[in-house]
Design a protein around this nucleic acid. Sequence first.
DNA 1: AATGAATGAGGATTCATTCAT
DNA 2: TATGAATGAATCCTCATTCAT
Lengths: 195, 195, 195, 195
Amino acid sequence: MKKADKHQKILVAATKVFGSKGFFSARISDIAKEAKVADGTIYLYFHNKYDILLTLFEEEIAKLIVDIKAALAQEEDPRRKLYIFALHHLKLVIEKKELAEVLQMELRQSSDSVKEYRITKFVDYVNIISGIIHQGQKSGIFRPELKPGIIKRAFFGALDEMSRLWILNSDHSYTIDDTADEISSIFLNGISLPA
Amino acid sequence: MKKADKHQKILVAATKVFGSKGFFSARISDIAKEAKVADGTIYLYFHNKYDILLTLFEEEIAKLIVDIKAALAQEEDPRRKLYIFALHHLKLVIEKKELAEVLQMELRQSSDSVKEYRITKFVDYVNIISGIIHQGQKSGIFRPELKPGIIKRAFFGALDEMSRLWILNSDHSYTIDDTADEISSIFLNGISLPA
Amino acid sequence: MKKADKHQKILVAATKVFGSKGFFSARISDIAKEAKVADGTIYLYFHNKYDILLTLFEEEIAKLIVDIKAALAQEEDPRRKLYIFALHHLKLVIEKKELAEVLQMELRQSSDSVKEYRITKFVDYVNIISGIIHQGQKSGIFRPELKPGIIKRAFFGALDEMSRLWILNSDHSYTIDDTADEISSIFLNGISLPA
Amino acid sequence: MKKADKHQKILVAATKVFGSKGFFSARISDIAKEAKVADGTIYLYFHNKYDILLTLFEEEIAKLIVDIKAALAQEEDPRRKLYIFALHHLKLVIEKKELAEVLQMELRQSSDSVKEYRITKFVDYVNIISGIIHQGQKSGIFRPELKPGIIKRAFFGALDEMSRLWILNSDHSYTIDDTADEISSIFLNGISLPA
DNA sequence: AATGAATGAGGATTCATTCAT
DNA sequence: TATGAATGAATCCTCATTCAT
């Protein structure tokens, strides 16, 4: 197994373990067992437990940004773009339940280093939304008086809370597409100029 | 000092400490010092560290529900009610920054006992929103095809994310009233039937 | 048991354990067991394992300095003083075998903090010797051309090496008094001016 | 590279590393890096970390004994011999600072295997001194009532302490020759019969 | 009821040693 | 022979909880 593979294997295991027990309750030995490596091996790839969490965010959010930007590039209409963002975000929740849980829980951690982190990678992600809003305002589709800084937060928050619903409830009454559709249409109705 | 007072004093201290360091990083001795009692005294009022967190939610959210319901009772119009809910929720963030932080962070903890708890008290709180939506749909003000279960989550999530913005940023460009207004109007535009 | 007592009890235990296994091989749990306290209790009195060692030196050498100075105060003749110093030093080896072993072993540790320490407390101790030499030179008893800085080291080294002999060998062919006498007389012959 | 060369290279590296960090704080990987071999390679030449230390003593002290005996063979006078021994010992400190540090520190370790070792090789070294004393007593130069067993220890101790001075202090006020001269003359004055 | 010293279980991390390549 | 990634036993230290006073 190549070096990069083991690095990845540990991250995958950590995502799962952090997701199910939370960062603090997760034990290094849990991650090691899940990754089928020795405890000590983890320290060949990461400085410490916290470094695993940080790397997790860095790598996964980076991937997510790439994916979403690729999907958005196919589309012109800011209204459609908002829907696509919602859809992607919610899809992530289903496909990478564990990462979503980590995002859910750990992103709220108040430790300074995470806060610092947030203002880099995570903010890039959320700023995709304000970019869409901005574009829509320039095209005369969205109401010009709205502050993109507020909308992006509200939109992200709405999606995020929906994710929480999915993560915590096992039986899902609604499909992703329906939910993405419903949330984006509420927002679109809310922020669009009358035709 | 009466028994109830010390119980309360510890909860106030715990709110502050959990808020600033998070549940796991908070030490019982931190809370004891903040409450100006001995470490051991805490165990005369609470079973364990976790019990403090649970009690905190129970008591504080209960109070919050009472407050909000009182405010809503003054109002008939579901559209106004939604604005009032938003305003109250955001006001809480300012007035009880620490509790809001605890809500922000710990509510996301996936530990089973919290999950269990959420389906009681916290859900009551969020259900106030779906009650408003429902009422609005019955009165023919809100679009009848929308699922209150989704709307309530989206609305709460939007508010919650705005709170996060406030908690983590020190300088606030927008006022609470503006934000409550903007968010509720997006939603109201989004979910209202055309007049 | 009073607080100071437990502090002392731990130091006594540490002296014994460090003495028999050396600092690095000694386990905190060994010291705790020897002191009949819980492992954690040690950390109520000391910052860490290293702090125990440092405190040990500080307290024991301080006591030793007091004792030796008291004994020297009774005496005028620098020649007698040197003998008294030798006698006290060697007596310490017998009476506090463990501390002597710690001194033997750990004082040689090259860690910076110990080195730093040495230039304070331990140097005070050894400087008692150069004080005696100096006094003897002023009184015209010791050869004036000798450097007290060298003599003190040589004399201490000779005593120290004799201690090592005692500590490592179980059967002692010579008595302390004989040894103190022999070593001090070699030095006295070596450094005295012809009568 | 021949087998013996790598064996030697590791010992040289170990001398340096043990000397600067002490045996316990030295890491196998430090030695490996210093010797420019892989960690695992060390185990092809030594059984374990401890075996390196033992071999170090064995080989280096053996060399030292050969050197000193060669130098002493040139000389008849026991008084000159003592001076030569002192000079050689102190020269070692300058030339092989690291080995001297190892001697300084690790020789004091009380671990049983080292203690055992000491009674073989190291004792041979120190016994060179008692041999000189004995010879001097037979020749009627040194006082016959002195116990060579004590003198050898005291002399070695004095030299050893002087080494410590050199190793720990960077600026050396005295030259080796001066120091060797001063120490051996103190002893010679101390142990010689009046002419 | 209140205290805070004492407890000891638990876990992150290190590093000597092994072993597949 | 040589490598260095992998191992996992070992240990310092933390801190929730207890309990004698």
